[in-house]
Design a protein around this nucleic acid. Structure first.
Length: 884
RNA sequence: GGGCGGAUAGCUCAGCGGGAGAGCAUCGGCCUUACAAGCCGGGGGUCGCAGGUUCAAAUCCUGUUCCGCCUACCA
């Protein structure tokens, strides 16, 4: 054996660095325009520039890489389009933090300088996560890397904004928005996290202005009462029919406000009377608009009470609440306080409680866009896998609200709108206009807000391919083939890409959407830094190797279920990488220089079997990949490589390799080489590094395994006879092994075996005779005898395989009582099945209504089991006679 | 409040109308010339509970309990 060819174990770090550089330098990640197959394209969900690779990225990108590598091997022209996202708030936060560390802030350095600093930061650290993706083995075309703030993509953003504005799909308007007093920006509805909090429901008395008594309202936010402009009751509510139209005195402020009737009010909640604060509550805003109520804003951008809050001005909103409650109490206007638990909105980035505020914002009118996006999925133009997410998608699309796209931060695409100082008119344009569109005034000021980060992300599938220019890439790869993403951004991102893609490209952005699960820890908890249960992908790759890590992710990625990851699992799959390595050592260590045998090549039963299985497995994997069943594809591969190729085929191949039969040896080498080659190729999408490393040793001249074809079912026609014959040989070997195992006979001790063939089954006799070598070597047997009608030897233990009786001679080692117990157990096992089958066959309904195939199959099974049982019984009697 | 998903071997899960499976763990035997990161064998489950449909249900339907998650303008 050529020991020098392969090291004792696979060394991941070396191979990973070596092969990744080779692939990239050889341009193997670039789409091959000479590929015979159709184009195949995936756009990467762009990670934040501020990000570092976490488990979510690792799973997401591993799955994409598996698809890309697989499709390349299937002959497609593959483009995996990479890039990063400028991540407005997140990135701004990072740079602000470093400014704070230097004792300054963004206002001190000014907008222009601040943005320069962000760019500098990006230049320095922005490539971090990209290099981590390289470490994962991602076969992205890095020469096409994009950034959402690139000149090209920024142009696309402006183009889209201007066009939507001109079409009336973007407008600027008054709205109650979700305001984060800490981040100082508006948040979209879906950026608000709702969480149940213990709070209180305060019952406050509003005295009538023109009569005795008072109306009691229930509120969770007494501090907003300073901005109340009405109290609403349901007009259907008989308790309050007479008070609508009268006035109450707003406590503390001592101002008259009207009582109005609005059906929004739920008579069953609280007192059935609702205080209305149009400037600080989205519902109140709507009600206020219906009734023409005044808007009084009493809380400012910092979450503090403003000058309209009277002597509360300057207080923090929570401090003010306390003070107001005290004041109400002392005036006898606080009726009672109930403990109350309800959902409160928080900022998804900093967890600060959201303050609904009235302000002017830019909105995208989403209704018409959403409708088209909905129809596209209904018509199957885009398929969502797993399909359960379709319902969620439709639900969101039909309840969609206008999308607030303005953000009050500096880092991002500045909204291309200019306000005229003289007439106040708005001019929206691609570039800074020379004059106001309305009055041609020259004093213009650009909108200071930037766009929501997701605005540019929504254009990603076409902006990265060159839009609005008509590029070859756009023509070739749009619509892209599949989008692979987690469900957490189904709304943030996927839905919006659908809307924008359909509107601007006239076609969906992707044919398929594959939604994968979330990666959780071994207990099923979400990984988070605060919980300390984070597994760092880079640590894991260093510890177990990237291939093992990738394989684990794929094997655990069952549809519709979260991935629970623990290091134990990864370690388990590292063993698989090692197994593949060692199997290859065996094969490569025994290959010679000989040329092909051609016509003279011999195909043994094992050869025919393994080649047939190879074809079946290739077909099964193809089907699994087509349906995005990554876990199935991985497990099919694992099962075949380990438990069929290694456990059975390699063991049987040793006969040819180590024997003296020269033609057989040459044939075996050829088959081994053929199967190993296929095994490497079918494993490559999961484990790119180790497969490339072995591939090089298997055939240097053929180039990278990335360019090799994925095994095809059609290459290996199904040899059904080989399957059933192999099954019989394996059965006999298994029977002997089981007896040895149960009797604790060490492998070093060979046993004598008598194999009794059922009458008339000459074919089985010759099959087992032909393969007697394998039975001897795999089951550690010596002097086997095979014939029809053989007697049970003295001191033997018997196992029945189908119709074959396998007597293992143990002589003095045999414990009669134990053997009787074993036989009884075997019989009982069969009895259970036989009873069940007999019941079925005795059931008229079954025989008449079940399909004939099923019935005859049951019948066959029943016969086989009965025959086996009969033989076991005979053996049992044998012992009973001896004992007598 | 609404919706979705899960409940199958000790653990993690696959199977989703006709013989209860895998990996890990566990127990027993082995350093058998690719691999002890390994090989061979064994044990272990009324498939959450209750009904129903069917000749046949882990698998379909209804209800129910317990977990997750998503979503929401009942103050």
């Amino acid at each position: 054996m050529k020991e020098e060819l392969m090291a004792k174990g696979f060394e991941p770090e070396k191979a990973e660095a070596k092969w990744y550089r080779y692939w990239e330098e050889a341009g193997l990640f670039k789409p091959d325009q000479n590929a015979e197959g159709a184009p195949y394209c995936i756009v990467i969900p762009p990670p934040n520039v501020t990000g570092t690779l976490h488990m979510g990225h690792a799973l997401n990108n591993t799955l994409q890489d598996i698809l890309c590598r697989y499709k390349r091997m299937k002959g497609f022209e593959v483009l995996w389009q990479p890039g990063t996202d400028h991540a407005g708030i997140a990135t701004q936060n990072v740079v602000e933090k470093s400014l704070a560390a230097q004792g300054t802030d963004r206002n001190a350095v000014g907008r222009e300088r601040f943005i320069e600093l962000v760019w500098e930061w990006r230049k320095k650290y922005g490539g971090f996560i990209i290099n981590q993706l390289r470490r994962l083995g991602c076969s992205c075309d890095w020469s096409r890397e994009r950034f959402t703030m690139d000149e090209g993509l920024s142009r696309a953003v402006r183009e889209v904004f201007v066009r939507l504005y001109n079409e009336g799909l973007i407008y600027r308007g008054d709205h109650i928005i979700n305001w984060c007093p800490r981040c100082h920006t508006a948040l979209a509805d879906i950026e608000v996290e709702h969480e149940d909090r213990d709070s209180a429901l305060y019952w406050v008395r509003y005295p009538f202005a023109d009569r005795e008594g008072y109306l009691v309202v229930a509120t969770t936010r007494p501090e907003t009462m300073l901005g109340d402009t009405a109290v609403a009751v349901n007009p259907e509510d008989i308790r309050y029919g007479s008070v609508i139209g009268s006035n109450v005195i707003l406590p503390i402020v001592k101002k008259n406000i009207p009582v109005i009737g609005d059906t929004y009010v739920d008579p069953a909640f609280g007192t059935g009377a609702l205080k209305i604060t149009p400037a600080h509550d989205p519902n109140d805003f709507e009600i206020g608009r219906r009734h023409g109520l005044e808007l009084i804003k009493v809380i400012d951008d910092d979450g503090r009470m403003n000058e309209l809050a009277g002597h509360y001005a300057g207080m923090d909103r929570f401090e003010c609440r306390k003070k107001i409650l005290e004041d109400l109490q002392s005036e006898g206007l606080l009726e009672k306080v109930d403990p109350y638990r309800h959902a409160v909105g928080h900022c998804y980035r900093c967890k600060t409680m959201i303050e609904p505020l009235l302000s002017k914002q830019w909105f995208v009118r989403t209704k018409p866009l959403a409708e088209a996006a909905s129809i596209a999925v209904k018509k199957g133009k885009t398929r969502i896998y797993p399909s359960t997410w379709e319902a969620v998608y439709f639900d969101w699309m039909s309840n969609i609200r206008d999308w607030c796209v303005s953000r009050q931060i500096w880092w991002g695409h500045r909204i291309p709108a200019w306000y005229c100082r003289s007439c106040g008119g708005i001019t929206v344009a691609m570039e800074a206009p020379v004059g106001c569109k309305a009055c041609n005034g020259k004093e213009l000021e650009q909108e200071s807000d930037v766009l929501d980060t997701w605005f540019s992300s929504a254009l990603w599938p076409f902006s990265t391919l060159g839009w609005p220019d008509k590029t070859r890439e756009l023509a070739t790869f749009y619509p892209t083939s599949v989008l692979v993403t987690g469900f957490d951004i189904l709304f943030f991102w996927v839905a919006r890409m659908m809307m924008m893609g359909i509107h601007f490209m006239g076609d969906v952005p992707f044919r398929d959407v594959y939604i994968h699960a979330l990666v959780r820890d071994a207990e099923g908890k979400k990984m988070s830094k605060s919980k300390g249960n984070v597994i760092d992908p880079l640590d894991v790759m260093g510890k177990f190797g990237t291939d093992a890590f990738r394989f684990t992710l794929a094997a655990l990625a069952a549809q519709g279920r979260d991935v629970k990851l623990s290091e134990d699992r990864i370690e388990g799959y590292r063993h698989f990488v090692n197994k593949l390595w060692n199997a290859s050592r065996l094969v490569l260590g025994n290959l010679g220089e000989e040329a092909g045998l051609g016509e003279r090549r011999i195909y043994t039963l094992a050869d025919r079997w393994v080649l047939t299985r190879l074809g079946q497995v290739a077909g099964e994997m193809e089907k699994a990949f087509d349906e995005y069943r990554f876990n199935d594809a991985a497990n099919i591969c694992y099962q075949f490589v380990w438990h069929e190729f290694c456990d059975w085929y390699l063991e049987m191949a040793k006969k040819g390799l180590y024997g003296n039969d020269a033609p057989l040896r040459l044939s075996t080498r050829e088959t081994l080489k053929e199967v190993l080659s296929a095994v490497l190729r079918m494993s490559h999408p999961f484990m790119p590094f180790v497969t490339e490393d072995i591939w090089e040793k298997l055939s240097y001249t053929d180039g990278s395994i990335m360019k090799a074809p994925f095994p095809e079912r059609s290459e290996h026609p199904e040899d059904r006879e080989a399957l059933t014959e192999m099954e019989k040989v394996m059965g006999v070997v298994g029977a002997v092994r089981a007896i040895r195992g149960e009797m604790n006979i060490p492998p070093s001790k060979k046993v004598h075996v008598v194999i009794d063939i059922h009458e008339g089954e000459e074919k089985i006799k010759s099959l087992l005779t032909d393969n007697i070598y394998h039975i001897e070597s795999l089951a550690k047997v010596e002097n086997p005898v095979i014939d029809i009608g053989l007697k049970k030897p003295a001191g033997s233990v018997t196992s029945v395989v189908g119709s074959v009786q396998v007597h293992v001679v143990l002589k003095g080692l045999l414990d009669f009582d134990e053997e009787k117990r074993r036989l009884q157990k075997e019989i009982a096992k069969r009895d259970k099945d036989i009873d069940m089958l007999a019941k079925k066959l005795g059931n008229k309904g079954f025989v008449e209504k079940a399909s004939p195939d099923v019935v005859s199959e049951v019948k066959e099974r029943y016969d086989a089991l009965s025959l086996g049982r009969e033989k076991l019984l005979k053996n049992l009697h044998f012992f009973e006679t001896i004992n007598d």
